[in-house]
Design a protein around this nucleic acid. Sequence first.
DNA 1: TGGTGCTACCTTGTGACGCATGGAACCCCG
DNA 2: CGGGGTTCCATGCGTCACAAGGTAGCACCA
Lengths: 115, 115
Amino acid sequence: MEPRVARVVTQLRRGTLEYCVLAVLRHEQRYAFDLVQDLGRTGLVTSEGTIYPLLSRLRRDGLVESTWEESPSGPPRRYYQLTADGRAALTAFVQEWTTFRSSVDAVLPDLEDRG
Amino acid sequence: MEPRVARVVTQLRRGTLEYCVLAVLRHEQRYAFDLVQDLGRTGLVTSEGTIYPLLSRLRRDGLVESTWEESPSGPPRRYYQLTADGRAALTAFVQEWTTFRSSVDAVLPDLEDRG
DNA sequence: TGGTGCTACCTTGTGACGCATGGAACCCCG
DNA sequence: CGGGGTTCCATGCGTCACAAGGTAGCACCA
């Protein structure tokens, strides 16, 4: 068991995850269960326990809105759409992320470096 | 006061900070107060309240070692050096960071995009 | 009818960690 | 002796990813 290594990515996800969700929503509405599987494929989301509280926060802060729709098979789905505030927040985040990423890259050694 | 925007970067720093410290230490030993001012310049560290617990963790996990040295002005300084484990952890992190960064970049819109 | 399994929603509790705050000690200068 | 810079540290808070667990609808099969 290597708790340190195992949780590095978990820590990295902090803060970026909600904006990744906003980014996905910028083109089309999605529902939570769908998002888990989609973003899970890229390794960004791991479980529903992450996405539901996250979406609640985004709703609370007015960055997304939701509408209920019937499912062809199963319980009804709550679809999320980006609001104008959400779109603005996403734009602002991309700026911050870019700056932050550059700072980190400037400090870290390149992959091909050996020391 | 804009709590959400203000704390975005705080969340981003999570997980990366300790490895940025390791990265700085890979070339020369440093002491905490010095690190705060250095990494503070690039916006990665904001206060001593961050760096001291962080260094304690790194020491506890054997990623760094420390030696006391006299200061020309003030109390003695605790200088930190990278251990072999620390160097390995840094290498592993760079790999994880690179992967993660790519995943995020793939989801986020480019800066020049307008949608 | 009852069982199994998938979909889809949600809540609660835990742990990690950045940061604010505050304290202590050392030093120099006036 | 007092003030300010340096340098160490500990305590408590808030945020958030995640695990674990709970409910309900639908489908299929025996």
